[in-house]
Amino acid sequence: MEYLDFELPIKELEEQYQKACNIGSESNVDVTATCKQIEKKLIETKKDIYKNLTAWQRVQLSRHPNRPYTLDYFNALCGDTFLELHGDRNVKDDKAMIGGLGKIGDQSFMLIGQQKGYNTKTRQYRNFGMANPEGYRKALRLMKSAEKFGVPVVCFVDTPGAYPGLEAEERGQGEAIARNIMEMTRLKVPIIVVIIGEGASGGALGIGVGDKVMMLENTWYSVISPESCSSILWRSWEYKEIAADALKLTAKDMKKQKLIDEIIKEPLGGAHSNRKETFSTVKDAILSSYDEFKNLSPSDLVNKRMDKYSAMGVFKA
């Protein structure tokens, strides 16, 4: 387990607890009371730390190396029914954007999402979760195929941004994202979006338009990362914490601005501290969202979705 700097008191207590347990098993000293005491303190400390997280701390949690990634959700939610589908039918198969069919409960879903890696090798393989145009085009191909057969779509968003590469520009990164956004506003099947980690700008929105957009509690979603915002507006990387606050990028702030529909609670200690619980709450959230939309006619569904996005924005008139 890796710990973030503000989680260090938790680390310390967990080590103490482990030590006490070891002493108990290696000698005849009764440590039950001590263990209980440490355990109690551990829960209190966790509650204390996680109750008052700053925006920047949530950004850090959203990037926690132990956090479940898209494929973990696919496998946990669908078991052996997940069937991965590859390729955009034009250039190649983007490893940063994955997708396929699977059953959640009794219902088939088209599952799509950005995938990050869990070690250096896989991080490179997945391009750090930064998709190229072919990734977005693959996603659109799968959505269109889902629409054809009336299968609902679930998108898992976890990206530091669309890849800003030379070839990405040659192949039209902007066009690919724009096309997805437009087609998603009028797709005739329900779209459920879950932000499971980072939701950075157009790269996130490129698979992020939906009837129900939900954010896990410790994720962020905005027009730019706090680091880049700091470097552009303050001309220094030093102001990332202030930028994180200013951007109002946490789930709570996004809900307040009515830019997302729901917040999914994470277990105490974050999604990674209890994966099983996280998968189960996400599954419930997806299924109950689907229940809301499954009986709407395609035109009602699309009109409702378009109305929702048309209402976004604050101005003086």
């Binding site: 724009a178 956004i181 437009m182 087609e183 506003t185 009028r186 700008s201 157009g202 929105l205 338009v209 979603y221 905005s222 027009v223 730019i224 915002c229 552009i232 507006l233 200013a246 951007l247 109002k248 990028l249 996004m254 601005q257 830019l259 979705r305 378009m306 996005y309 048309s310 976004m312 924005g313 604050v314």
Partner: peptide, 22 residues
């Protein structure tokens, strides 16, 4: 996008695209 309106400006991408779809 205008950074000073953060995610609100991001959502204008969806808002304008929805209209163009219509």
């Amino acid at each position: 996008a205008r950074m000073m309106e953060a995610a609100l400006s991001l959502m204008q991408l969806a808002k304008t695209s929805a209209k163009l779809a219509q």
